[in-house]
Design a protein around this nucleic acid. Structure first.
Lengths: 128, 128
DNA sequence: ACCACACTTGAACGATCCTTCATATATTGA
DNA sequence: TCAATATATGAAGGATCGTTCAAGTGTGGT
């Protein structure tokens, strides 16, 4: 087997120049990791409903969020912790209540774009 | 899997009217499921690098994609199957080669938006 | 003080996911 | 035909994720 790849990956390369140029433009490992985590937060139906609810309802307390999205209090709280840690939502505490709202306007755009994609690829899925 | 049921959830509600109104505007279960899957595809560093590579490189064969993103051929092929099934990429076959490209321009915008979010929330993460 | 409440958190279980290895398919060239 | 190539796929392993239950924190009301 002939290895053309200068790096550790023992994969045959067809267009070495293109590969090299693409590699130069790839986001850094840290950026890729961050992006993956952001998208990972959006990859769960429960969290997605919560964000949609906050998008529509503005600021909401945990129990209303749980009721609106059909989740348990505990599950809702766990989910909010993840969103909080990634700064997707922010919390305002008042007495024993915790009021959450979206911290980032990009979420709405991500949402709308993804919906557009979903609509655009509606119908049967599968191999081409 | 959680099913939204108005009566099954024994969670106290503070603002019943708001909860009801939010529930009315929530995307359908199918839409939520679709969205979650779309975001799920973007939630993996390897697939993310592949999409970034295709964004930059246009049309690429599997081995070049593997080399550019530092993944095994097998892993790359598995990833491409997922992206193919969700119509995120499309394939053109020529002889024994398979050339992949992005099927959907929304991917670029999702990418850029997420990068903007990541940059915007740069620095320390954690509870607020 | 006490109890009820709104929320949080830790641990455990099951489900899902990603990676890898081995094998399979299909095409090219000898 | 046979061997090498390019890609695809099934299965198995371990890691990760989401949900649930149980218990914990802190506040408000009596």
């Amino acid at each position: 087997m002939v290895v053309i790849d200068p790096d550790a990956c023992s994969v045959p390369i067809v267009d070495a120049e293109r590969v090299a140029s693409v590699r130069r433009t790839l986001p850094s490992e840290d950026t890729v990791q961050d992006l993956a985590q952001v998208f990972g937060l959006l990859a769960d139906p429960g969290r997605l409903r919560m964000m949609a609810a906050l998008l529509e309802g503005g600021e909401m307390c945990v129990c209303d969020l749980a009721a609106a999205t059909g989740q348990s209090m505990s599950g809702t709280s766990h989910a909010l912790r993840l969103l909080r840690m990634r700064r997707v939502v922010k919390v305002r505490r008042s007495g024993r209540m915790a009021y959450y709202q979206l911290a980032d306007s990009h979420v709405r755009m991500l949402f709308d774009l993804a919906i557009t994609h979903a609509r655009h690829t509606e119908g049967e899925l599968g191999d081409g």
